[in-house]
C-alpha cells in the first residue's frame, strides 16, 4: 500500500562526505554492475555503443563549483570544486510513495527502505515527477521504475562475507566518502558522524525529510599568494655544470655548427 508508515523501526541510509569524495564515479559503476544482475529488472542501456548512448542508473555523480564571495582578506578567492554523488535519499515523507496509483511503491516499516514492486508498476512515471532529487528513472527496456534499493539484496545477505553486507557503492568507494548505517539510532556511527560534521538535508524546504545525509566540505587552506607550496623547494640549485660534464659542455660548444 502506498500509505506511508507513521514510523519505521530503523532508518537505514547513507551518509555522503562531500569533503572526501574525489568524483571517481566508482560507486556509479559498481551500483550499475550489482543492480543490473540482481534485484529486479536489469538496468538497460539504449544505443550504448552508438553516437547517442543513454541508460538507467541509480546513482549519479554531479560536480559543482562554489565561488566564495570576495572580501577584505581575500580579494580574489579561488573557486572550490565539489563532487556530489546523488541517489535515492529514502525520505521519511516520501512523495514518490503516496502518488503511486497501484501500490507498487512502498516504504518498509522494518528499515525505512523505499522500494518498487516491479510486477505492480504500470510505468506511469508520476513517482519520478514527484521526486525533487531525480532519484528515480524509468527503464526504457523494462517499462518499470528503477531506483536505489540500498542494496537490500546485499545488506541482509548471509551468503556474503560480513564486510560485504553494505550497499555496493559504500563497499566500492576508494576514498571512504560513503557511510552506511541506522540514522534512526542516535548512537550509531553514522548518526555520530552527522552530529560531529554538521550533516544536512538536500532541499529541506520540500518537506521530504530525507534519511540520507550529506557532510559539508571542510574549509580549504588559505594560500592565495603562493599556489604551489613546493615551488620554493624545487628552485634550480645550480646554473652551470662543473667537473668533467662542465668541460665537455664547453668543449662541445667550441666546435662549429649545432643549434648554438
Amino acid at each position: 500500500m502506498t500509505e506511508l508508515p507513521n514510523s519505521t523501526d530503523r532508518k537505514m541510509g547513507l551518509v555522503i562526505d562531500l569533503d572526501t569524495c574525489v568524483g571517481c564515479h566508482a560507486c556509479v559503476i559498481s551500483c550499475k554492475g550489482w543492480n543490473t544482475e540482481n534485484y529486479g529488472a536489469p538496468l538497460s542501456d539504449q544505443d550504448p555503443y552508438g553516437s547517442d548512448p543513454s541508460g538507467t542508473f541509480l546513482n549519479r555523480v554531479h560536480s559543482f563549483e562554489v565561488q566564495p564571495q570576495a572580501c577584505g582578506t581575500q580579494p580574489a578567492p579561488a573557486a572550490q570544486l565539489t563532487h556530489f554523488p546523488k541517489s535515492c535519499l529514502h525520505c521519511e515523507d516520501a512523495p514518490c510513495v503516496t502518488v503511486c496509483p497501484t501500490g507498487a511503491s512502498y516504504k518498509r516499516v522494518e528499515d525505512g527502505i523505499v522500494l518498487v514492486n516491479e510486477s505492480d508498476c504500470i510505468g506511469c512515471g508520476l513517482c519520478a515527477w514527484s521526486c525533487p532529487y531525480g532519484a528515480r528513472e524509468l527503464d526504457l527496456a523494462a517499462g518499470v521504475m528503477k531506483k536505489c534499493t540500498l542494496c537490500v539484496d546485499r545488506i541482509y545477505n548471509e551468503n556474503l562475507e560480513e564486510i560485504d553486507r553494505v550497499p555496493t557503492c559504500v563497499r566500492t568507494c576508494p576514498a571512504g566518502a560513503r557511510h552506511f548505517g541506522d540514522l534512526g539510532d542516535a548512537d550509531s556511527d553514522v548518526s555520530k558522524l552527522v552530529a560531529e560534521r554538521g550533516g544536512f538535508d538536500l532541499m529541506p524546504e520540500m518537506g521530504t525529510k530525507p534519511v540520507n545525509k550529506y557532510l559539508p566540505p571542510r574549509p580549504k587552506d588559505q594560500i592565495e599568494d603562493q599556489i604551489d607550496i613546493l615551488a620554493p623547494l624545487l628552485a634550480p640549485v645550480t646554473g652551470d655544470a662543473g667537473g668533467f660534464m662542465g668541460w665537455l659542455d664547453r668543449a662541445l660548444d667550441k666546435i662549429p655548427g649545432g643549434a648554438n
Binding site: 559543482f64 562554489v66 572550490q80 565539489t82 566540505p217
Partner: peptide, 13 residues
Amino acid sequence: TATGLGNGGTVRA
C-alpha cells in the same frame, strides 16, 4: 538548497 553548498558562496553546475 539543492546541494546544501550555498554557505560557501555561489554554486554553479
